[in-house]
Design a binder for these strands. Structure first.
Lengths: 214, 214
DNA sequence: AAATGGTTGTAACAAATGTTACAATCCCTA
DNA sequence: TAGGGATTGTAACATTTGTTACAACCATTT
């Protein structure tokens, strides 16, 4: 029980009661995932629930042809509802989880999740809130894809990326953006050029700078 | 406690233990919704959890402009995960629920849902399974909208409608179909005509008949 | 049977997105 | 500093979807 480990548990100290924190510490395993690494892929089975201590995890859907679509982000102190899904119903993953920064997570055996639902009200609340918030986000995602044109989706996407990283500089190629929005690179280049002409952003190599009135 | 009421509870007798069934009976209110009636609309607050005793409820998303998109169906013995969402986080509804047949549902006060999560393992399992299955369905919906062309979406839609009603006759106008798929009537007419030419279906007034090799 | 209102068929066109191809540019490494 | 791989810009075109308009059709009421 190192001092450093205590710090990790502390991420959740505002959320959980003391007894639960102690149990969490005793039962979970600390894992590090480097920026860009995929911690979970489609078709994999998941045997542990990840609680994110530090960093950001990008969760996306991959269809049969390998096309990708960004669903949502998991941030510090949060967990992934789809993982609950897979764990509890013993299904293989239908999503991909990739670290967007160097991230640290606590892995918790499925069985504990279930046990604690009854034992700790704060845990039950955490699980329910996580799941239900994700619902809202996925519905938002459905909205975007179903009702919005690509130009608006691109703008929202860039805003979100900028929020996550806390910077107006976005280090992505047009290809990468196209992949995450489930469209073609040329489409993205085209739309970005239009935004550049409208003085909303600047295009550099592998980088985009959002301007003030973006 | 009428005999008829007992029958309603019986829908859930395979799912819940006896004590829970008794509590369910004591705490819930029986409501009927006629075919086509909307039981829940966007912006409404929900104070009760609906358990569907009989019938089918269509759940759809409505965006700001009033455009609709079919999300999933709730069937006998099932409940609506989005309602859990709204109830537990005290939010207004972001979805619409409409009866596709004459339907009967048990309405349960939110507080009981929470209480029973701890008290009855079968209830906890029911709630979790409901929520998590919906997740899968909404992801499927995202897939459809994000990756599939309208012709394929239309085919899947007609198949599902046929499944729900258990008939190869679908009583809908092109306008209604367009609404549920979030597109234009002309687009639907066009695609249906193509399917008719390919001998997949027959178009009648306010009715479509799916043929064998649909 | 004529009138009416809703439904379907279709043309013609606009807009959005997808696709292919190729040139220009950038950046890293030899 | 020259070469090569990845990235970006752009044209040209195909396909899909959206939109408007109007005619034809159907079913019900008068």
């Amino acid at each position: 029980m190192t001092n450093q480990f205590f710090n990790h548990i502390d991420t959740f100290s505002g959320l959980f009661e003391h007894a639960l924190l102690t149990e969490l510490e005793a039962n979970s395993m600390l894992i590090e995932v480097k920026n860009g690494n995929t911690m979970l892929n489609v078709g994999q089975t998941i045997k542990a629930i990840p609680l994110l201590v530090k960093g950001t995890i990008k969760v996306s859907r991959i269809n049969e042809e390998g096309q990708e679509l960004l669903l949502y982000y998991v941030k510090e102190g949060e967990s992934c509802a789809m993982t609950f899904n897979c764990c509890m119903l013993s299904k293989t993953s239908e999503i991909k989880g990739t670290a967007e920064e160097d991230s640290v997570l606590l892995c918790l055996p499925t069985i504990k999740m279930d046990e604690w639902m009854i034992k700790y009200p704060s845990w039950k609340k955490y699980v329910m809130t996580t799941i239900l918030n994700r619902f809202t986000e996925i519905i938002k995602c459905v909205d975007e894809v179903a009702f919005k044109k690509m130009d608006e989706r691109l703008i929202n996407y860039l805003k979100e990326k900028s929020n996550i990283s806390g910077s107006s500089l976005i280090n992505l190629t047009h290809q990468q953006i196209g992949d995450e929005l489930g469209t073609n690179r040329v489409v993205i280049s085209r739309l970005l050029k239009k935004l550049e002409n409208d003085k909303k952003l600047l295009i550099y190599n592998k980088q985009i700078k959002l301007l003030k009135d973006f």
